[in-house]
Amino acid sequence: MSIQHFRVALIPFFAAFCLPVFAHPETLVKVKDAEDQLGARVGYIELDLNSGKILESFRPEERFPMMSTFKVLLCGAVLSRVDAGQEQLGRRIHYSQNDLVEYSPVTEKHLTDGMTVRELCSAAITMSDNTAANLLLTTIGGPKELTAFLHNMGDHVTRLDRWEPELNEAIPNDERDTTMPAAMATTLRKLLTGELLTLASRQQLIDWMEADKVAGPLLRSALPAGWFIADKSGAGERGSRGIIAALGPDGKPSRIVVIYTTGSQATMDERNRQIAEIGASLIKHW
């Protein structure tokens, strides 16, 4: 067993022997301040990774656009098919120029040779490549099948209805392509620590998230040296922004954090800054 596999296998073990965790309302004060600064709703939840206990939450059962955070769930569904012998990570998928959609920095470079399922998941999570996500959605049967996968996990809230990039439209009061912070946090925890996926697939999923290259201005910008984070960000229309993450000190994750916002007129930089400040408060009061 590799060191990384050992780390993920012992996530519940280490967490069980940690000192009790206590909620700190100071972080919620910052979440509410972010709402004021952005002029928009902000949803927040913080779960203990081992027990699933909610440590703090704000608007945990209000719907927010998922945006690209759905790509972690998508690759979880792909990995479940791999575990069941219905898919192979090494299978190569070929596609054409007509398949390319807006923001496809990886797939646009491989029109000639195609990409493997493993490479597509890596591109979808680490670079948020939209064509990679659409190609992977095709392998599982489309958005409705991802929703069905989530329902089978016990998540009857999260739903995907459309493809990239239309799913980022974020129309107010439109339930399409949305989740709730509580539902997303619980589902992410199941994917990373539950028995739904094999140990190898859980490790692969967290490795992809740990290698995320496009979430630097968010929670990662607030992390002290030595902290662990595996995350996936999302951005959408109407001032929408979000991030889902597993993080913790001492090089291992111990909490799940989900943050979503929508309806702001603020710039992307300002949305990023507010999420980073929430992260800084979380870490300060850990």
Rank of each mutant, 00 (worst) to 15 (best):
Met153Ile: 14
Ile256Tyr: 03
Met184Tyr: 08
Pro65Val: 04
Glu102Pro: 14
Ala9Ile: 13
Cys75Lys: 00
Leu137Cys: 06
Ser122Lys: 13
Leu10Ser: 10
Ala225His: 14
Phe13Asn: 03
Lys232Trp: 00
Lys30Met: 12
Met184Thr: 03
Lys53Phe: 10
Met115Asn: 03
Asn98Val: 11
Ala245Val: 04
Val117Thr: 07
Tyr103Val: 05
Ala280Cys: 12
Tyr103Gln: 04
Trp163Lys: 11
Val21Phe: 05
Met268Tyr: 09
Leu188Asn: 02
Gln4Ala: 12
His285Thr: 15
Leu74Arg: 00
Leu120Gly: 02
Met153Pro: 01
Thr267Trp: 05
Asp99Leu: 08
Thr107Ile: 05
Arg238Cys: 14
Arg220Ser: 04
Ala34Cys: 10
Leu55His: 08
Asn130Trp: 00
Leu111Glu: 07
Ile3Phe: 11
Ala148Trp: 09
Asn50Asp: 15
Gln86Trp: 10
Phe6Ser: 08
Leu205Trp: 03
Ser51Asn: 10
Gln88Ser: 13
Arg59Ala: 06
Gly39Ala: 13
Leu218Cys: 05
Gly248Ala: 03
Thr116Gly: 04
His94Cys: 09
Thr139Phe: 06
Leu197Asn: 05
Pro20Leu: 02
Asp33Thr: 15
Asp212Gln: 07
Ala183Leu: 07
Arg7Glu: 08
Pro65Leu: 03
Ala211Arg: 14
His5Glu: 09
Ala246Met: 15
Val214Tyr: 05
Asp33Ile: 14
Leu188Lys: 00
Ile171Tyr: 14
Ser128Trp: 00
Leu74Gln: 02
Leu47Lys: 04
Met127Glu: 14
Ser68Glu: 00
Asp231Glu: 04
Tyr44Cys: 03
Asp113Ser: 13
Thr147Asn: 11
Ser233Ala: 08
His94Ser: 11
Ala200Asn: 15
Asp83Glu: 10
Val82Ile: 10
Leu74Cys: 05
Ile54His: 12
Arg7Tyr: 09
Leu247Cys: 07
Gly239Leu: 01
Ile3Tyr: 14
Arg220Pro: 02
Pro172Glu: 13
Leu282Ala: 08
His110Gln: 09
Phe17Gly: 09
Ala133Ser: 11
Lys252Met: 13
Ala185Asp: 00
Leu10Lys: 05
Met180Ala: 14
Asp129Val: 00
Leu223Asn: 03
Gly234Leu: 01
Gln265Lys: 15
Lys232Gln: 00
Ala230Ile: 07
Thr267Lys: 12
Trp286Phe: 06
Leu160Ile: 13
Thr187Ser: 12
Asn50Val: 12
Thr267Ile: 09
Arg59Thr: 02
Val157Lys: 15
Arg189Ala: 14
Glu62Ala: 09
Ala84Met: 10
Ile256Lys: 00
Gln274Asp: 04
Pro172Arg: 11
Thr138Gln: 15
Leu135Asp: 01
Trp163Phe: 14
Val258Gly: 04
Lys213Ala: 15
Asp177Asn: 04
Gly142Val: 01
Leu28Gly: 08
Ile275Thr: 03
His24Thr: 15
Met1Gly: 00
Glu277Met: 10
Ala34Tyr: 06
Phe22Asn: 09
Thr147Arg: 11
Ile125Trp: 00
Pro105Glu: 05
Trp208Gln: 03
Val106Asn: 06
Ala280Glu: 15
Ser281His: 12
Ala246Lys: 03
Lys144Arg: 14
Asn130Cys: 05
Leu47Met: 12
Ala132Pro: 00
Ser254Gln: 15
Thr267Phe: 07
Ala185Ser: 08
Trp227Ala: 02
Ile11Ala: 11
Arg255Ala: 04
Lys284Asn: 11
Glu270Gly: 08
Thr158Cys: 03
Lys284Gln: 13
Ala222Asp: 09
Leu188Val: 12
His94Asn: 13
Arg7Ser: 09
Lys32Ile: 11
Thr69Met: 03
Ile244Lys: 00
Ile3Asn: 13
Gly248Asp: 02
Lys213Glu: 10
Glu166Asp: 14
Asn98Leu: 14
Ser122Arg: 13
Pro165Ser: 07
Glu175His: 14
Met153Lys: 08
Val101Phe: 07
Leu89Val: 06
Ile259His: 00
Cys75Gly: 09
Thr178Trp: 01
Glu56Ala: 11
Asn98Arg: 15
Leu55Pro: 02
Thr147Pro: 03
Phe228Leu: 06
Ala124Asp: 01
Asn168Glu: 04
Val258Thr: 07
Lys109Met: 14
Ile11Arg: 05
Gly234Val: 00
Asp161Cys: 06
Asp174Ser: 07
Ser51Pro: 03
His156Asn: 14
Ala246Gln: 05
Glu46His: 08
Phe58Leu: 09
Ile243Glu: 03
Arg91Glu: 06
Lys30Gly: 05
Pro224Trp: 03
Asp212Trp: 02
Phe22His: 15
Ser221Trp: 09
Glu277Ser: 10
Ser201Thr: 08
Gly248Met: 01
Gly234Trp: 00
Ala266Lys: 13
Asp33Glu: 13
Arg176Asp: 06
Val106Gly: 06
Ala215Tyr: 04
Asp207Gln: 13
Trp286Val: 02
Arg273Leu: 13
Gly248Trp: 02
Thr69Val: 03
Pro253Gly: 08
Ala185Arg: 00
Glu61Leu: 13
Ser281Pro: 03
Leu146Pro: 00
Leu137Ala: 06
Ser51Gly: 09
Pro224Ile: 03
Met153Gln: 09
Asp161Ser: 07
Asp33Gln: 15
Pro224His: 06
Ala16His: 15
Thr262Pro: 01
Ile125Met: 11
His151Val: 13
Ile171Arg: 12
Arg92His: 10
Ile11Ser: 07
Ile283Pro: 02
Arg63Glu: 05
Ala170His: 09
Thr262Glu: 09
Cys121Ser: 04
Phe22Leu: 13
Thr267Gln: 13
Leu196Trp: 14
Ser221Ala: 13
Glu237Trp: 10
Phe14His: 04
Ser233Asp: 00
Val101Arg: 08
His285Gly: 09
Arg63Ala: 07
Val117Ile: 10
Thr112Leu: 15
Ser68Cys: 01
Leu73Pro: 09
Ile45Gln: 05
Ala280Thr: 11
